[in-house]
């Protein structure tokens, strides 16, 4: 039971079908059960089309499951309305996507501040300091006022990581965050996430196709055809 209370995320018989009620309806996730602890640093691996992105979208409350239940910080989410899911998402989830999804109209610093602004309005000096601190931590303090299109891919991804962490989320979700980067940069970005996961004490769930990266994670969850086929802990 203590394990359950310590969970950031718990899936119970989670199912997802696309095009529900239509002739081309297809179930992609077939009843997943999973528990992610507060300090887990887990890799989600699996062949293309196995449903990894689908699962991440469900966990991030961007999408709704067809059946089963998803508990985020102990809260059941299936019957939540959009406003409730938006609130919970803003409070507890940080996203990093494959293609450094930054908002082009805003500087790097404003991008990092955006999640705070969306929740609280005008950022406090404390919030700005925090955002600057995060930019510094990802090595981009000099680029605070730079627009995303003047940053390299790796730099943009680092801004995205800073942005995902600015709200101190309980769970950081990353969908192939390094998929678009060269090996060296990918390793750097991975190290950043690893460090932040430890320092900020948030759980990390990261989708990757790179076996070296997944091997470096504490836990590896293997998803094949919408079923979890293995879930191994590499640290005792």
């Amino acid at each position: 039971m203590s394990e359950m209370q310590d969970a950031v995320l718990r899936l119970a018989g989670l199912r997802k079908s696309y095009n529900e009620g239509r002739p081309n309806e297809a179930e992609v996730l077939h009843g997943l059960d999973l528990l992610i602890g507060r300090k887990d640093f887990a890799a989600l691996i699996g062949p293309s089309g196995s449903g990894k992105s689908t699962l991440l979208n469900l966990i991030g409350l961007l999408d709704q499951p067809s059946a089963g239940e998803l508990y985020l910080l102990g809260e059941p989410t299936r019957t939540m309305d959009d406003a409730g899911r938006t609130r919970l998402r803003g409070e507890s989830i940080g996203f990093v996507f494959q293609f450094h999804h930054l908002i082009q109209a805003f500087s790097a610093l404003d991008n990092v501040l955006m999640p705070l602004m969306l929740r609280h309005g005008r950022p406090s000096p404390g919030a700005v300091d925090r955002a600057r601190g995060l930019l510094a931590a990802v090595g981009l303090e000099k680029f605070a006022q730079t627009r995303p299109n003047q940053l390299s891919g790796g730099q943009q991804q680092r801004v995205a990581i800073a942005r995902a962490l600015v709200t101190e989320p309980a769970l950081l979700l990353a969908d192939e965050p390094t998929g678009n980067l060269d090996t060296h940069t990918a390793a750097e970005v991975f190290e950043l996430m690893r460090r932040f996961g430890r320092e900020a004490g948030c759980a990390v769930l990261l989708v990757t196709h790179d076996p070296r990266l997944s091997a470096a994670c504490d836990r590896t969850i293997d998803l094949v055809d919408g079923r979890i086929v293995s879930d191994t802990n590499s640290v005792a």
Binding site: M117, L118, R119, H120, G121, R122, G126, T167, A200
Partner: peptide, 25 residues
């Protein structure tokens, strides 16, 4: 290390404050 899950941000959720962000955007 601070507690990861208790946000240090103000818990205010005034719609007026959020309107500021809509303006900026």
């Amino acid at each position: 290390m601070n507690c990861p899950c208790s946000s240090t941000e103000r818990p205010v959720r005034s719609p007026v404050l959020k309107l500021w962000t809509a303006w900026v955007l």
